[in-house]
């Protein structure tokens, strides 16, 4: 049976060192660069006409733009639009890398915990910096919800603090685990087909069953690839909304 974990191996393509830091160009880096070029290139290509009546491609680019802009407006209001470039970058980056990973043989950058953790920590730090810059110490009101009786307030505050600091964990693990599990499942079911065919006889006869499963799971994984990009972006919006309006 083919190793379902093999696909997540980071391969060193050529060694590189920047200021003494190991910056080896890996297949992961290759796909990050490809994702950036692809997402930026597609948006630019789609909007090249800049026409008042959009072409099909242009309306796709505009739909993506409006989708993320709507998300930002709905969660943070009009003042959240100054974070729109950041949110849009998160969405495009994760969506493109998730989708690239769906192509057989391609590397899925978002199934690397270090990558998703770094993205989640970036969100976490942005929330803290923006929160204190906007509200000063008023940002700490985030941990003191309104209308809570004074005798349970310490407990509630403790829970709020714990939930706040566990955000980057759940934020990064959700994306990482979804992508990882999906790709392992696909690989395992695809492996079943080969194993059953190799076994010959009656076992070969039921080989189409895992094939059907792979078909279904592939469709599901495309949905997950989009959904996880959406969920990551949506949560980023909600966390940033806390930074803008800590008073709940």
């Amino acid at each position: 049976m083919p190793d379902p974990i093999h696909q997540f191996e980071v391969k060193r393509l050529f060694p590189l060192e920047i200021f003494g830091v190991d910056a080896t160009f890996t297949n992961s880096a290759l796909f990050m660069v490809a994702g950036v070029l692809l997402s930026f290139g597609l948006l630019m290509y789609a909007s090249r006409g800049r026409s008042l009546v959009p072409s099909r491609m242009q309306s796709v680019a505009e739909s993506v733009y409006e989708f993320v802009a709507g998300m930002v407006r709905d969660s943070m209001g009009e003042q959240g639009m100054k974070f729109f470039p950041l949110i849009f970058t998160f969405f495009m980056f994760i969506l493109t890398l998730n989708m690239l990973g769906m192509i057989p043989g391609f590397f899925t950058v978002t199934s690397q915990i270090w990558v998703t953790a770094a993205l989640a920590i970036l969100v976490f730090l942005t929330v803290i910096v923006v929160g204190f810059a906007k509200n000063g110490l008023g940002f700490l009101k985030l941990f003191v919800p309104d209308g809570v009786p004074i005798y349970v307030l310490p407990l509630v505050s403790l829970i709020e603090v714990i939930s706040f600091f566990s955000r980057p964990l759940s934020h990064s693990l959700r994306l990482f685990a979804n992508m990882l599990a999906g790709h392992i499942t696909l690989k395992v079911f695809a492996g079943f087909i080969i194993m059953l065919l190799g076994a010959g006889g009656a076992a070969s006869a039921i080989a189409p069953l895992p094939l059907l499963a792979v078909l279904g799971i592939t469709a599901l994984e495309f949905l997950v690839a989009f959904l996880q990009a959406y969920v990551f972006t949506m949560l980023t919006c909600m966390y940033l909304n806390d930074a803008l309006h800590p008073g709940h």
Binding site: D22, F25, T26, F40, M92, F93, V115
Partner: peptide
């Protein structure tokens, strides 16, 4: 793989951020 991945994540993410923005 932490260091090589994060270096390139920073490079690509920042690049995408400025290209989009």
């Amino acid at each position: 793989t932490v260091s090589p991945q994060l270096v390139w994540l920073a490079i690509t993410f920042v690049a995408l951020y400025f290209l989009l923005k």
